[in-house]
């Protein structure tokens, strides 16, 4: 296999229309003069975990951040093309970005709880989005979100303690609970386990597995084993190109592209 042209992954894998949650069409991203993402076409399936892998600087995080318009916050960044969530272009001028970010939650590499209590960390989003109308309702959301994030058992007796006092793994699960609390449809995770130990990592991976029942998850990871363990689809990026996209199983047993093979087998230098 030779280096593919930019459109080699167009339409692969093909989902039936009703299974597509996110459809990216000819997406290009520029940081000033730097062309960071080149003509990426990619469809992401509903209630699936999709992993983005690739060497540092390949554009996988940049691409992830396009999905909830986080790149809007960077002045020199310019995004072209279309990204549709449920057939609606999220770059449409009439779209409310704040609402979009409630629909598309995000979890970052380093756990970043607010310097507030555990309770307030989770309650903040529902409060400002007006999701809960009564105190009781809000308490219910906090409890459910913490339960879904697998943290409830560990923190239910100290909800008034600062979130920053938790262990790294617990903080990350708190951030996931915070993301879930605003009832998103999609959760973006940018290397969510890179600062965690193996046990905390395993808990997050188990959580991802459970969350995919209700959410569509896109995860950027540097750990190929993690991508193999948690995702159903894997996309390999290289120098801003989407080189290969397919079933995770196929990518890790029999990748089509030589670049993909070299990268995942540790021959990339």
């Amino acid at each position: 296999m030779t280096n593919p042209d930019n459109n080699s992954s167009n339409g692969k894998p093909v989902f039936p229309q009703e299974k597509i949650k996110i459809a990216c069409k000819r997406v290009n991203v520029y940081y000033g003069d730097k062309h960071a993402i080149r003509d990426v076409n990619l469809e992401i399936g509903k209630n699936e975990v999709t992993a983005f892998i690739g060497p540092s600087g390949c554009g996988k995080s940049t691409f992830l951040r396009c999905i909830n318009r986080m790149n809007d916050t960077i002045d020199i960044c310019r995004v072209e093309g279309e990204i549709e969530i449920d057939n609606e272009n999220i770059y449409d001028k009439s779209l409310d970005v704040v609402l979009l970010r409630a629909r598309v939650g995000m979890v970052f590499q380093k756990p970043n709880p607010f310097p507030k209590s555990i309770y307030d960390n989770v309650a903040y989003g529902p409060k400002i989005h007006g999701i809960a109308s009564t105190k009781g309702e809000l308490e219910g959301i906090v409890e459910t979100s913490l339960k879904k994030a697998g943290l409830w058992e560990e923190v239910n007796d100290r909800l008034d303690q600062p979130g920053t006092g938790l262990s790294g793994g617990q903080q990350q699960r708190l951030c996931i609970a915070r993301a879930i609390a605003v009832q998103p449809e999609i959760i973006l995770m940018d290397e969510p386990c890179s600062a965690l130990d193996p046990i905390a990592t395993a808990k997050i991976e188990e959580l991802i597995e459970e969350l995919k029942e209700n959410y569509t998850i896109v995860i950027v990871t540097h750990s190929m084993q993690q991508a193999a363990r948690v995702s159903q689809k894997t996309a390999f990026f290289h120098l801003g190109d989407l080189v290969e996209y397919g079933e995770t199983e196929d990518i890790f047993t029999n990748p089509v592209n030589k670049l993909t093979q070299d990268y995942i087998t540790g021959r990339y230098g």
């Binding site: 084993q225 047993t253 029999n254 990748p255 093979q261 087998t265």
Partner: peptide, 9 residues
């Protein structure tokens, strides 16, 4: 080594 792809095969 947790081999994948050609190495695994």
């Amino acid at each position: 080594r947790q081999p994948v792809a050609i190495d695994l095969r």
